[in-house]
Design a protein around this nucleic acid. Sequence first.
DNA 1: ATGGTCCTTCCCATCATGGGAAGGTCAAGG
DNA 2: CCTTGACCTTCCCATGATGGGAAGGACCAT
Lengths: 135, 135
Amino acid sequence: MNIGEAASASGVSAKMIRYYESIGLIEPPARTEAGYRVYAGEDVHALRFVKRARTLGFSIEETRELLALWHDKSRASADVKAFALKHIGELETKIAELQGMAQTLRHLAHNCHGDHRPDCPILEDLADPAGAGRH
Amino acid sequence: MNIGEAASASGVSAKMIRYYESIGLIEPPARTEAGYRVYAGEDVHALRFVKRARTLGFSIEETRELLALWHDKSRASADVKAFALKHIGELETKIAELQGMAQTLRHLAHNCHGDHRPDCPILEDLADPAGAGRH
DNA sequence: ATGGTCCTTCCCATCATGGGAAGGTCAAGG
DNA sequence: CCTTGACCTTCCCATGATGGGAAGGACCAT
């Protein structure tokens, strides 16, 4: 299987497959005499693992640790669970941050007439967060 | 006021102030004969505007548009409101994505014993999302 | 005049991904 | 047998926002 086929089979672009190889995230595959990369079913399996981890928001370095746990047949499930819970915590922190932004903006937008007049509490808040909203 | 003072007065690092200037987000300030940047109160005001916009999750390019709206005395508040609502929508999309990730991981972690045994639904899902959970 | 703290510009690194150029390879069809 | 088109290779560059740090100049208090 060439890289293009491995890409469509795994959902990881050929570009990223080469990149993952260059940073040592995945094993370098065999090569043909002409230098073409040749992938086996197991390689595609690893690529799908990486794709899934990235989709769940794990960074590449975290994905590297997950791959190590995956290959370590003797790991304790507690280790994997702790890793996942830590990541969940980070996701929740990020979510809370974004929700804070959205909430502030919703409040400002709610107080903005949204008509032809120029007065706008949104810009007033940006210009002077402490003073905006005063009358 | 030197750049360091403007930085602590605005909450924007000196490094970023220079960067914002280099990309034309803020006006180049006056200079002393020796080449030092000299900031006035109005400059710090603009920097705080930028800082606030960034804190609310606007990109630099979006911040550029907000600055333009701010300086355009004749804009309609409806334009600003529409801009804010669009950004709120993007924030909500991002939040939903992250919540999807967190929810999936919570589900997987919930089904993981988290003990000394190696069996782990989390890794099974990463390795085979479609098949994990089968018995 | 000396030292410490500020300032200047310039280059490099991050993280993950894509774009594209220049050139080699392979398979199909004339 | 040769061309054509689709693939592959490596290499460099760009993104977005920020920080780190070097080399050198400026300012100020002792």
